Computed example of a mutant assay.
Amino acid sequence: MKNTFRCKCPITSALDILGDKWSLVVIKQMLFEGKSMFKDFTDSPEAIATNILSARLKTLEDFGIIDKQKLPTNRKTNIYTLTAKGLSLVPVLVEFTLWSKNHVQDFNPDMNLDEKLEWVEKNKEAAFKQIAENYKEYKQSLLKVKKDE
């Protein structure tokens, strides 16, 4: 992995890792949609090309945002899960969602907005914690189920 950053700015450096069209979509799919295998991502409505998906998964893995493990029952299949570093992006994704709800919805009235967003907006810290805990439980059950198959 070559760490080439454009400059010393923390925002620009983060964008060098996460600022492309797909990285946050992949993380969102893992966190909120339970996607964990390559086919899960390619079957999504966002329609990411396989070569781009492969590159994004590799970059996210290289920077420690996701882990890749082999499925014990099928050594050709990888399971991708968020690391603690990846989960630390929960507040960013929630704030991005709320910003979109408040500023983009007028341009995209068909946007999917969860009915829990009002609660999330009023209880951000509790929401951040709950989302992370839910994912940790999901990840644990995913890895256990996959190992038991």
Rank of each mutant, 00 (worst) to 15 (best):
A84I: 04
K70L: 14
E115I: 08
N74G: 00
T42C: 06
G86T: 03
I17V: 15
S44H: 08
K116R: 14
D114L: 10
H103M: 05
F63V: 12
S13E: 12
K21A: 11
K68I: 05
S88K: 11
I48T: 06
E115Q: 12
H103L: 05
V26T: 06
R56H: 02
K70D: 11
L93E: 03
L31G: 02
M111I: 12
W22A: 04
P109W: 01
R56V: 15
E115M: 08
N102W: 05
I17H: 01
K101A: 09
N51M: 07
H103C: 07
G19D: 03
E61N: 13
T83W: 06
V92A: 10
Q29C: 10
D106Q: 12
L53G: 06
D20F: 04
T59Y: 02
K85W: 04
V104D: 07
P109L: 01
G19P: 03
N108P: 00
Y80L: 04
L15E: 09
V25K: 12
G34N: 12
P72S: 09
D20K: 05
A55G: 08
T50K: 14
W99E: 07
K76C: 00
D110N: 14
P109A: 03
G19Y: 03
D43T: 12
E115V: 08
S88A: 13
K116F: 05
I17M: 02
T97A: 14
V92I: 11
D114W: 11
F32S: 10
E61M: 11
Y80T: 03
Q29D: 15
K116V: 10
M111L: 14
Q29P: 02
A55M: 09
T59I: 12
P72F: 06
Q29K: 11
G86Y: 02
D110S: 12
S13D: 05
Q69R: 14
L60P: 01
L15P: 00
G34P: 09
Q105W: 04
P91H: 07
